[in-house]
Amino acid sequence: MSFTSLISNFAELEVGQHLYWQIGNIRVHGQVFLTSWILLGALLVFISLGTKKMENDPKGLQNLLEFLWDYIRDLSRTQIGEKVYRDWMPFIGTLFLFVFVSNWGGALIPWRIIKLPSGELGAPTADINTTIALALLVSLSYFYAGLSNKGWRYFEYYVHPTPIMLPFKILEDFTKPLSLSFRLFGNILADELVVSVLVFLVPLVLPIPVMFLGLFTSAIQALIFATLAAYYIGEAVEEHH
C-alpha cells in the first residue's frame, strides 16, 4: 500500500466532517447533540430506574447508584474541602457522569452502523465545542465559587505568596480551560482515530486491546476532568492565612 493511498484511506475516515443543523441563522453540529441526547437519555433512564423505589436497605441498582454517589462525594470532598463541597458536588458529579457516559458511549456503541448524510456519530466529547463548553463552565464555576465565598478577597489569591505570582496566576486562568478542553478532546479523538485506523488497516484481533485501552483512557479522562474541576474550585475557596 503506497503512502498516497494510505492518505486517501484516511480521508475516508471522515475526520472533521459534521452533520450541520441550521436553526435560524446559527449552525450546530447535529451529530454531537444526537449522541449526547441518546447517551444522556440512557443515563437518566438508568438513574430514574435506580432511584424509583429507594429503601434504607439498598438493593440492586440503588446499591450501584449509592456507590457512585459516595465516589463523587469523596472526590469533591477531598478536592474542595469539608466546608463547601456540598454546594459543588452536583456540578462535579454531573461533569464526571457526562464525560464518562460520553466517552464510554462513544467507545462502546457501534455508531458506525447508523449512516448520516454527513459526518458520523461518536463520542460527544470528541468534539471541541463540547469540551470547551465543559471547560468554560468549570472556569465560571471557580470564579463564582471564589467570589461568592470570599467576596473581593478572592483576588488575594492572585498575589498569594508574593505579588510576583500575579502574571502567572492571570495566565493560569487562561491555561486552565485550555488544558482541560484540549486534554479531553485530544484523548478521546485520538482514541477514536487510532481505533478506526486500526480497524481499517487490520480488521481482526489487533484493534481489540486498543479498544480496551480506549475504555481505560475514557474512564481516566472522566476522572481527571472531574478531579481537576473540583481542585480548581477548591483552590478558589481555600482560605489563606
Partner: peptide, 10 residues
Amino acid sequence: DINATLPLMA
C-alpha cells in the same frame, strides 16, 4: 470548527 454548538452544549 467552533460554532453555536458550544453555548448550546453549555
